[in-house]
């Protein structure tokens, strides 16, 4: 009895995030380009150190791993929603 009224809900709910996720997946590289390929990068890469590591290194590698994590989350969501 319980499963029946619940049935339409997931499909209706899923349609919304999938679209958002697809759009996010499409926009992620633009975010990467904005952070890595614009003069923005110079603002964060002055000659200084944080925790013994040059800021430039931590900035670039930080953005890099951030993109990877986001891509992994999105890929998983896309894969699970059957749209991979």
């Amino acid at each position: 009895m319980k499963s029946e009224p619940e049935k339409p809900e997931p499909s209706g709910k899923r349609a919304q995030p999938t679209r958002k996720i697809r759009e996010s997946a499409a926009l992620l590289p633009l975010l990467g380009i904005f952070l890595l390929l614009t003069p923005l990068i110079s603002a964060f890469t002055q000659d200084s150190f944080t925790g013994g590591i040059p800021k430039a290194v931590s900035y670039i590698f930080g953005i890099w791993i951030g993109l990877i994590v986001l891509a992994a989350i999105l890929a998983r969501r896309l894969y699970n929603s059957g749209d991979g």
Binding site: D47, G52, V57
Partner: peptide, 26 residues
């Protein structure tokens, strides 16, 4: 003896970090 130590040994001119963003980078 760790990341901080390695970057301590770094030649200060190596990174040229203020000029990372240039035509060649793009």
């Amino acid at each position: 003896s760790g990341p901080a130590d390695i970057f301590e040994r770094m030649d200060q001119d190596l990174l040229q970090s203020s000029q990372i963003f240039n035509g060649r980078w793009v």
